[in-house]
Design a protein around this nucleic acid. Structure first.
Lengths: 202, 202
DNA sequence: GCATTGATGTAAGCAGTGTTCACTTTACAG
DNA sequence: CTGTAAAGTGAACACTGCTTACATCAATGC
């Protein structure tokens, strides 16, 4: 069940693609139990392999978690892309922010992993196979901000503002202070847009 | 050095106030190493006590961490109170938000603990000795929002907006995506205040 | 075709962890 | 003084991350 995507060799001594399998399994485990519940040995068991085998693909538990965090980040990026790609202007920006918040609602534990030190550590592993299939969620937010401004060069203050709002509402949800899809997130977005549309330049 | 505040009995079999000592030691450990580095046995060692002794005061490691998170939350509340208590109106609100952000800059690991599941678990332990010496940072934010509105009843949307901005910038800093005291935090605050002062009511 | 070799797996073991439990030590009420 | 409950010890258990020595397989050069 876990080894769906990258079909592993059936019953051979060698797994076939253990690295991807571990990341996949790890993503599922973190999604359910969070970071601190995650166990390297358990992940190995899920993949049908001894714990020692993990160390042929990752230096230590942290690097495995970093890879999982990278996967979580691309998952967010994909959903954001799907939600924003065919929109323009203010609607696009709003959709980008909402994608951020929706992801935190749908996968709070993955969101926390993505923006933990493991996600930061994965800045070094950004170029995995395929050379960035989709721009990161942050890049999409930046381009969306550019889209609502007449000026082609993005105002860093406006970007910081939009990022703060989106990340703030998302964090409040993933941290459990707001409920999933809490209307307050939408309200905060609504108010913030009165700034962005009201005044395009300082 | 660790047992400064609540002076423990010198060298007796019984510690005197082990519970507070553990929380104090835990706060220091989390401040330096973060949540996942934190070890119950290490904390017990720091307090000069066997690991088993911890379980006379806390059901398990999670409850100890919850108590530490509670301490971190009151630390934030105290600093916020000190920064805002003698201000009024927009200045007060700005100071409250800034206190949030400054705390995340000064103690990123404590901030993460405070707004992790351990901090949430400590909602149940809110009434520790002394019946809330200081209103929580959130309550202070709420009252500050009330102060900038002519209407005495706080507009929940405005509160959500302010909370989002403050928590967002603070999280971005404590998560390492922005640097400590990053000017973008101040810029985001600046822009957000153009909303709050520009339109007091819907 | 076939041995060699490097990559990938196993198995056992180490130190450290959270947690439990039987036990000892202490403070204190009657 | 003494009995009791609170607060500590220390040894054990199952588990963890990680290392090491060894086993197995797939591919390569000859």
């Amino acid at each position: 069940m876990a080894r769906a995507q990258t079909q592993a060799k059936k019953d051979s001594y060698h797994h076939g693609d253990l690295r991807s399998a571990l990341v996949e399994v790890g993503l599922e485990r973190v999604r359910r139990g969070g970071i601190d519940q995650f166990s390297l040995r358990e992940a190995a068991r899920d993949a049908g392999v001894t714990s020692g085998a993990v160390y042929k693909h990752f230096a230590d538990k942290d690097q495995l978690l970093a890879a999982v965090a990278g996967e979580a980040l691309t998952l967010l990026a994909k959903r954001s892309f799907k939600a924003t790609s065919r929109l323009k202007g203010a609607e696009r920006l709003r959709a980008a922010a909402r994608a951020y918040i929706d992801f935190a609602s749908a996968e709070p534990l993955l969101f926390r992993l993505a923006f933990s030190r493991f996600g930061a550590a994965c800045n070094d592993c950004k170029q995995q196979a395929g050379a960035a299939p989709v721009p990161s969620a942050f890049e999409q937010l930046r381009s969306a901000v550019a889209g609502v401004q007449s000026d082609p060069h993005v105002d860093p203050d406006v970007l910081a503002f939009a990022w703060s709002i989106a990340h703030g509402a998302a964090s409040l949800i993933s941290d459990g202070m707001w409920e999933k899809n809490d209307p307050r997130a939408e309200a905060a977005l609504q108010l913030s847009f009165s700034v962005l549309s009201g005044k395009n330049k300082t």
